[in-house]
């Protein structure tokens, strides 16, 4: 085992342990903001794993898109919401035994399925490292718009659906909407906004004695 392989294994296990720890903390932390930050940690650690797999472009995309954009927005939302966690906590305790049972069952099944005897190095050859001139982005680009054109187009339609759904759910009805019409706004004249009213001078009315007493 060369020093490179040992280093690789250290990085792999460190990142893997971080993902599992962060994943548990996302669910377990009391404060939702802290939970969101742990999710960021989980994303960063998965990006490290992807770099180990030589998927540099995807790793960077994960950091830019998820950590940089999605989670930042998510943090804003979480900070603005006033979430009361107490009622959730009581239910959490009530369903905990059942949840643990299901979790243990699924965990055993999954460990059984992805065990070394099915996916180990005896079954699959150890993947070779790519050469230094290998470009991840170029490989991705050459199949994305050719072989995977159909799913690529479908994903774009999915984004269109998200836009339509978000706008139609969040946009207030036309009565409540406050629109900016700059063209009309700059042409406004004094007469449109201000009305001069001529009033007759009136006698000053003193508050009555009774009212003064009350105060």
């Amino acid at each position: 085992m060369t020093i490179n392989m040992i280093l690789e294994q250290i990085v792999f296990y460190a990142a893997a342990v971080t993902i599992v720890f962060a994943g548990i903390m996302v669910i377990g932390s009391r404060n939702p903001v802290r939970g969101a930050l742990f999710l960021v940690l989980a994303f960063v650690a998965s990006a490290i794993l992807w770099i180990l797999l030589e998927a540099e472009f995807l790793a960077l995309a994960l950091i830019f898109v998820y950590v940089g954009a999605v989670m930042t927005l998510f943090l804003f939302v979480v900070m603005m919401l006033d979430i009361n966690l107490e009622p959730m906590k009581t239910r959490f305790v009530r369903y905990l035994p059942l949840g643990l049972l299901v979790m243990a069952l699924v965990l055993v099944l999954v460990i059984f399925a992805v065990a070394p005897q099915h996916f180990g190095t005896a079954k699959y050859a150890v993947p070779q490292h790519a050469s230094a001139s290998y470009s991840n982005v170029k490989e991705l680009g050459s199949v994305l718009y050719t072989t995977y054109m159909y799913p690529f187009e479908l994903a774009s339609v999915l984004l269109l659906v998200a836009i339509i759904a978000a706008i139609s759910l969040a946009l207030p009805s036309s009565r409540k909407r406050r629109l900016q019409r700059p063209g009309e706004q700059v042409q406004v004249k004094r007469e449109d906004r201000l009305r001069m009213v001529k009033m007759q001078a009136e006698k000053k009315i003193l508050p009555s004695r009774k009212w003064l007493k009350k105060r």
Binding site: Y150, P151, L154, A155, V157, L158, V161, A162, I164, A165, S168, L169
Partner: peptide, 15 residues
């Protein structure tokens, strides 16, 4: 495409 079709089916329905 099967998965994308499935999502494209259910997301608009949720909205």
């Amino acid at each position: 495409p099967l998965y994308l079709g499935l999502e494209l089916l259910s997301l608009p329905m949720t909205a």
